[in-house]
């Protein structure tokens, strides 16, 4: 049975390195485990109730969803456009192609620090340049900080969406394209009725991956604003991080993570269906 032979590495790995941590993590949510109280008391659904009635959690959930949807849509559209643009043999392609990937090569935690340096009002390059053209702005002012974070996320992650869709374009049957060009189809028509349908799985894959990662956004925002002012830019990951590491409430943090997963899980098949058909039949 080749299907089990080929599947065995995954089963083996998942049995040890997935099942146990997931089980352990979800189980923690049912216990009152905290640093202040290391006795592991079974508390049933208490943690879940506490999280769900915490206005801080609900505010974080709302901000995270809005933020994630906004950046995902923009990044997927820009990434696709960029993939189409790069998908031809122009001079300097190799150099620029690699350069386009550099933003995702800087570790996010480190990139957060680099943004902090770049945007600093006293020693940062961006405010200095803006001042020379007469714009004295404070980039971190509370009324624009959300827009700033969205922009930074787009700068950071559009390359990711680009790479996935560009790679997809490379597997694109060029003969189909040539045939269409011979038929004299316009560029927009080719894009809409030939490229887009064939690329649909990979576009959905890029969109989906960006979305689930954006829903876990943490590093750059944590370094720049730590979720503030107040709770204005607190994402769910920041909320959970603080619950575990600043409050020492590991049980609550596990429960909050589990809730996030359970709420989002029903949406997963909607995307998965569009990325891959499950049962080995032709599309």
């Amino acid at each position: 049975m080749p299907k089990w032979v080929l599947g065995s590495p995954l089963i083996l790995f998942a049995a040890i390195f997935v099942a146990y941590p997931v089980y352990q993590g979800i189980q923690t949510g049912f216990y009152g485990l905290s640093l202040q109280n290391p006795e592991t008391l079974f508390t049933g659904l208490d943690n879940f109730g506490t999280v769900l009635t915490d206005p801080g959690f609900l505010a974080a959930a709302k901000f995270t969803v809005l933020f994630a949807v906004a950046v995902t849509v923009v990044e997927t559209v820009l990434g696709f456009g960029l993939a189409l643009l790069v998908n031809r043999d122009f001079p300097g392609k190799k150099v620029f192609f690699t350069m386009l990937l550099v933003p995702i090569m800087v570790a996010p935690a480190l990139l957060g620090v680099m943004f902090r340096l770049l945007l600093n009002g006293d020693i940062g390059l961006v405010p200095a340049v803006l001042r020379t053209v007469g714009l004295d702005v404070s980039l971190f002012a509370p009324n624009t900080v959300v827009q700033l974070l969205v922009l930074l996320d787009i700068l950071q992650w559009t390359p990711f969406a680009f790479l996935i869709m560009y790679a997809g374009l490379q597997s694109f049957p060029t003969d189909v394209l040539e045939a269409a060009q011979v038929d004299g189809a316009g560029r927009l028509r080719i894009l809409r009725s030939i490229i887009a349908p064939i690329m649909k799985p990979i576009i959905f894959a890029a969109l989906f991956l960006r979305l689930i990662d954006a829903l876990r956004t943490f590093d750059v925002i944590y370094v720049l604003t730590a979720g503030g002012p107040g709770t204005k830019t607190t994402t769910m990951s920041i909320y959970i991080y603080k619950t575990a590491f600043e409050s020492g409430q590991f049980g609550l943090a596990a429960a909050a993570s589990t809730i996030v997963m359970l709420v989002l899980l029903p949406f997963v098949p909607l995307f998965v269906r569009r990325i891959a058909n499950p049962d080995g039949k032709a599309r």
Binding site: G7, V22, F208, M236, L265, V272, G280
Partner: peptide, 30 residues
């Protein structure tokens, strides 16, 4: 195997995606 031979069906992909929905901190202690 999952896509062409029906190994685990859609479950494999749904489960992988579900895993990625959990924040990394969830797995720190486990």
């Amino acid at each position: 195997s999952a896509i062409r031979l029906g190994f685990g069906g859609r479950f494999i992909m749904n489960a992988s995606s579900g895993l990625r929905l959990l924040p990394a901190i969830f797995f720190a202690v486990p």
